[in-house]
């Protein structure tokens, strides 16, 4: 039974071969991390506003020019401010944002550890 399942799963996965898995291109990755200023809840990737379309053209050009992903983010940050990036950089504004959850995790771990070693 178990083996049957294995075979089934493997078979199903391989039958997906006709999907072109490699086509995950950089453009999509970058546009997913940029926030659209027109429809302010959506990423540039998801938005179809004029603004988002132009941004896609620009990124395409920049990638052709050989700019790295980070350089492209930096470019948009300069134009529109940090707000446009969905992935906030770690700086003095965001220490709490990035570190507080981790601190909470450590704190929780400490409580559990204390409970375990208590005799």
């Amino acid at each position: 039974m178990k083996i049957l399942r294995f075979v089934l799963v493997i078979f199903l996965l391989f039958s997906l071969g006709n999907l072109n898995a490699k086509e995950s291109n950089k453009l999509n990755e970058i546009t997913k991390n940029l926030r659209c200023l027109i429809c302010q809840g959506q990423s540039v990737y998801d938005s179809d506003s004029e603004f988002a379309n132009s941004i896609k053209i620009i990124i395409d050009k920049k990638l052709d020019d050989g700019l790295s992903e980070d350089e492209i983010y930096e470019y948009f940050k300069k134009k529109y401010g940090e707000w446009i990036l969905y992935d906030p950089a770690l700086n003095k504004n965001t220490y709490i944002l990035w570190l507080l959850p981790l601190l909470i995790f450590l704190f929780g771990g400490a409580i559990i550890f204390k409970k375990l070693i208590k005799k």
């Binding site: 991390n33 401010g81 990036l85 969905y86």
Partner: peptide
């Protein structure tokens, strides 16, 4: 909170949640 305290505006999106 950041906006109220320092009027800096940032976005927190999918990459943040994924990374953490």
């Amino acid at each position: 909170f950041l906006d109220v305290i320092s009027s800096q505006k940032i976005s927190v999106g999918p990459p943040f949640y994924h990374k953490l």
